[in-house]
């Protein structure tokens, strides 16, 4: 029973991919998808999916939507900022690798945090060791741990903490 419960999130993710791939909800497609997804999910029940450890409460769901909205706004901001840098003749960069701290312990939350940092204005995760995250920054504002953390990590951590508590 515990194995089946562990495999639940993977089953859901696989079924979703299958249905998106077919783009239809005909019963033949769904039945084959359920069978195949269940078999794979039981074989590889240890594999992580974005749903592992997700807090299935109203607060978690609200945080997930907040996270998505914030993420896309930041993604667009990141690109506009980078566009300005790339298109200006003097190439105004001040690159460096800074160290920031994260409180997240759930592996999926940490993966999402690192990914989000990579796609947000001027930052790229280079290494993640324990609570320390090393981030390459195109325009270093501050190399103090606390200030850099507030600048880079805090925005996403606020949502991820609620989502994966």
């Amino acid at each position: 029973m515990t194995k089946a419960r562990q495999a639940g999130p993977l089953f859901g993710a696989l079924l979703l991919v299958w249905i998106l791939l077919h783009g239809s909800l005909q019963w033949q497609v769904v039945v084959v998808g359920v069978v195949v997804a269940a078999m794979i999910a039981l074989l590889f029940s240890g594999a992580a999916t974005p749903l592992h450890g997700f807090r299935r409460t109203q607060a978690g769901l609200r945080a997930a939507f907040g996270y998505l909205g914030y993420f896309f706004v930041e993604l667009v901001r990141a690109n506009l900022k980078l566009a300005v840098i790339i298109l200006s003749p003097s190439l105004p960069i001040r690159p460096g690798i800074v160290k920031v701290r994260t409180r997240l312990t759930n592996p999926v939350a940490r993966l999402l945090l690192a990914n989000s940092i990579t796609l947000t204005p001027g930052t790229l995760s280079v290494a993640l060791e324990g609570e320390w995250l090393y981030v390459h920054w195109v325009t270093v504002v501050s190399d103090e741990v606390e200030e850099a953390t507030a600048e880079i990590v805090a925005g996403f951590e606020r949502y991820l903490e609620v989502m994966y508590g």
Binding site: N79, L82, L119, T123, V126, H136, V138
Partner: peptide, 21 residues
């Protein structure tokens, strides 16, 4: 960005963010 940026890390930044969006 890939052409203009001076080192690998900046090139990765330019290459990843813009191509994703």
């Amino acid at each position: 960005g890939l052409v203009r940026m001076p080192d690998l890390f900046n090139r990765i930044q330019a290459g990843t963010k813009t191509t994703t969006l």
